[in-house]
Nucleic acid binder design. Structure first.
Lengths: 208, 208
DNA sequence: GTCTATATAAGGATAGAC
DNA sequence: GTCTATCCTTATATAGAC
């Protein structure tokens, strides 16, 4: 028995929903599309998740629990250094997120676009769910980055963090001009863009 | 007759659609919501725009024609200087966009969030419409900014432009941590965030 | 845990009178 | 140019059999 080929109905629903949310958005995706793609009955969504809203939340939970843990672990390791560089703190935030875009097998590559959708949503209930469950991660990083930019006022610091979050989201979701050249592997492309973002963000944070 | 209080059905539909698209997204907004808010009959959308898709396009056209012109005018003025600074080029791109967020009277403040929605959309038809009609503006700015960063490879330059576009989009749409303090006027807040973004972007572009 | 069948509401679009 | 009325499709959700 090869465990990797068995997926529960619940997992299949989450993966199908993630793919479709990335492409069509939350409102633009119907539960019928989701169940058709997952090859399960239409009633399965309600049985396993209770409602469409809860299905959306669980799509986030499946990825963000792991992503948050990886980010905090990386931050802990960076801060365990005698003299941690700003770049190391930024890398702890950025690299685990960009690594998701490489996760074709596990399906993380669709999730980064779902995350970008979430930013654009003004949906209060979704925002509350994300803030309640993952807000503490952002606050940890704000503190760590702020320690590297002691001359910035709190307001200026928060502005720059917003800019970095926007740049990361946008870069991850592949909205922009950059197309991967044919002679560069996806992994290399991703690592290069992570390094480019870290350089850019660090320079931006060090501006007076 | 006070002209400022008369709005055509078409204009009212565009404004209502813009507000609702900002809040609920394109798929999340029904034509019934739009016509109710505009206080016109449900059949008016089809009469004036033909379809929901075309209504979406016209919401963009109404603002982007003017925004693009303002950006190109500002770029022309910046480049007419003997020795234009990188900051002046960035300001030509950023300030007209952020000025929209102040445009409560004309309704531009909702549009910036509609723009952010558009970035998250993978809708090919919408992307084609925007690229066909406004892509030349982005290419002008890419050229102008690239002239200020001659040491960057083309790939690295494009990455950084992507990052700036992401930072601007999310800063404009007010998705982040920054809440305007009570003792700062909206106009001041907006100008400060524009200046913060210009500083951040310029420093990021100058990184080696 | 999965199915069929269905309740109930809302969606986009249009025909035709005024 | 605006209205009412309606067609047809699709949506979420659930009841109840297996």
């Amino acid at each position: 028995m090869n465990a990797s080929v068995h997926f529960s109905t619940k997992e299949r629903l989450l993966t199908a929903a993630e793919d479709l949310f990335a492409q069509f958005g939350f409102a633009g995706t119907s539960l019928r599309q989701v169940t058709t793609r997952a090859d399960v009955n239409i009633a399965a969504v309600n049985y396993h998740f209770g409602s469409k809203e809860n299905l959306v939340n669980e799509v986030f939970r499946r990825r963000l629990d792991e992503l948050s843990q990886k980010r905090l672990d990386a931050l802990g390791k960076a801060q365990a250094q005698a003299d941690p560089a700003l770049e190391a703190v930024l890398a702890a935030f950025i690299e685990p997120a960009l690594a998701l875009t490489l996760d074709r097998q596990g399906g993380g590559s669709a999730f980064v676009r779902v995350l970008a959708r979430a930013y654009a949503e003004k949906n209060e209930r979704l925002r509350k769910f994300l803030s309640d469950n993952y807000g503490h991660v952002l606050r940890e990083f704000a503190k760590a980055i702020g320690a590297h930019a002691p001359d910035l006022g709190k307001e200026e610091l928060y502005w720059r963090l917003d800019f970095i979050a926007g740049a990361l989201t946008y870069a991850m979701a592949d909205f922009g001009l950059i197309k991967r050249p044919g002679n560069v592997s996806e992994k290399t492309h991703c690592q290069r863009s992570a390094q480019a973002l870290i350089r850019f963000a660090a320079a931006g944070l060090r501006a007076p």
